[in-house]
Design a binder for these strands. Structure first.
Lengths: 139, 139
DNA sequence: CTGAATCCTTCACGATACTG
DNA sequence: CAGTATCGTGAAGGATTCAG
């Protein structure tokens, strides 16, 4: 009884519903799956090929979660071999914009992030070398 | 030499830069940290208290990653006890809008997701019960 | 073809203790 | 206060096999 859901939506609270909902889409693969389904219905195998690097297991898991949350509709045609089609529900469609915004940002700031990374890493590298140098000097 | 970076930004390719950038912000805590820093500079302890449920380790880790990617600036004041302040860089500021879009979505679709979940789970529960019933019947 | 189930490895993460 | 270092555990995820 203690772990009541927050009715007031402070996303900084751990048990806040909006936080939980946010976590549903804040993972490795979910944005990519959403984005892949933006164009319309896709079969399991199509998604598997489209999203390079995802394993069958993760794709299944991600799709199941999306289905459970009402974002994706799964339709099974009882034929052999099986045909299963995935598509965004109306609710899922509303996610396209936020996800696309993210992707546009990622694409739009490639260089800046890459540059920041090398700068940061070189700085680290430099500190490391100075540290080693001072150690050598102590002998 | 084989693992060249994609110059053409197809986010569905595993080695695509934009995909890698996307992954940097698609985790549990990053959106919350960004959102927390939206209001301005915050100290480590403040962030720790504000973001309920995050551990020191994860906060440090998340902040380091954000700093490395040039999204967050870290300023250390050489006083005792130490004071460390975090704030969004100009680049980091550009992430506010995408992140906020996500959070607005999460908040705006609480009910729908919650309802979809219970429906899905009840369906599962029902199938489970039917399965058990049929098993009992077989005796 | 579309999964479910199993095994197994890795590592993400929390807890704890320690430091400047 | 703001971390780092270390350890231990549980969960995530890949590979493989089996099934409808």
């Amino acid at each position: 009884m203690e772990t009541k859901q927050q009715t007031h939506p402070d996303i900084f609270q751990a048990n806040c519903l909006s936080r939980q909902v946010l976590q549903l889409i804040a993972d490795q693969w979910t944005p990519l799956v959403i984005y892949a389904l933006e164009g319309g219905t896709m079969r399991f195998g199509q998604l598997l090929k489209r999203i390079d690097g995802i394993s069958k297991k993760m794709l299944t898991q991600t799709l199941r979660a999306l289905e459970r949350n009402g974002l994706v509709q799964r339709v099974v045609y009882p034929v052999v071999p099986p045909v299963v089609e995935y598509s965004l529900t109306p609710l899922g469609q509303t996610l396209i914009e936020p996800v696309k915004t993210l992707e546009v940002w990622a694409y739009g700031h490639l260089q800046e992030v890459a540059y920041a990374q090398t700068t940061y890493d070189q700085r680290d590298q430099k500190s490391l070398q100075e540290e080693i140098a001072s150690l050598v000097q102590q002998r």
